[in-house]
Design a protein around this nucleic acid. Structure first.
Lengths: 154, 154
DNA sequence: CCACGAAAGTGGCATATGCCACTAATTGGA
DNA sequence: TCCAATTAGTGGCATATGCCACTTTCGTGG
């Protein structure tokens, strides 16, 4: 018993990943909160910003997120006037989104705060280790979890 | 442009972590779903199982989760009869929980499925790399994100 | 040109998480 | 002993995410 008893380590990759996500999420949220945005919302605004008036499906794919979930998450941002949606010219099924002037300003504001969180985190774990971690995570997010073709008998 | 355009890489550690969590979460959820449990619920049952009739606060700490969030997450499991709560003998503020007979059976059932997900994942990224990843994530979850003592003038 | 199946979103429902304001029970002094 | 500060949970409210059932559009083989 060193001090506060180590956290409940688990052999489950999923549980461990979620645990870390909760902790890191709260940290980024705290630092970014003065802007009124949550870390996830900041990430979404950023993704829209770096894309070219992306279709919702495009964003969902880039963020490895369910399309309907993206729709839900987008609502408060549209409601608050940071994002606006419009129909694609050629395919009326497609809905594209972009940042409004306010959204752009808010992104700027939040980016300053995000930088602080990012720097604080990387100062703690090390820039290189953070990069390594992201690489691992990107790999996990890109994996193809198809059923291992469990012997489909001819 | 190799094939499907790499996912929207982001320099944000938080966004990257969440993205991976979404993807891995869906994978574990899919595999575990025949039991009727979500991956998170499985993790919670497991945590309760390996603890000794833990107090809610104890679980919350181990899982690096907000106490009220834990309370919410616990509700469906109590409703479905997998977990039962009871007041601590010495401190009536404390609420302890334990698995019911059904909860134990469900945990057993789900563990078989979990093993499949766990093995499939580790077969893809490698057992050692998975262990390394968990180690990094445990470290992230254990970090002390206190304000960097930003010069509190005497 | 029309019926069909695929593609893109929407809405409803349920869980996952957090924060905040409260309530109840304890613990520490004065 | 009695009240103030602390501790443990609860409930309400809001966002984060997913799945499923639809609805609207497209794209196509007839």
């Amino acid at each position: 018993m060193t001090k506060t008893a180590m956290p409940g380590f688990s052999p489950c990759n999923n549980a461990t990943l979620r645990r870390a996500a909760r902790k890191l999420g709260r940290f980024y949220d705290d630092v970014i909160s003065p802007s009124g945005l949550k870390g996830t919302q900041y990430g979404l605004l950023y993704q829209i910003y770096v894309s070219n008036e992306p279709a919702m499906g495009t964003i969902a794919e880039a963020m490895v997120m369910d399309l309907s979930a993206l729709g839900h998450t987008l609502k408060p941002l549209i409601r608050d006037g940071y994002v606006e949606a419009f129909a694609d010219k050629d395919d009326r099924r497609v809905k594209r989104v972009r940042l409004t002037r306010q959204g752009l300003a808010k992104l700027d504001e939040a980016t300053k705060l995000w930088s602080i969180a990012q720097q604080r985190f990387e100062a703690m774990v090390g820039k290189q280790r953070a990069a390594d971690l992201r690489a691992m995570l990107d790999e996990v997010a890109a994996l193809d979890y198809e059923a291992p073709a469990a012997a489909l008998p001819g």
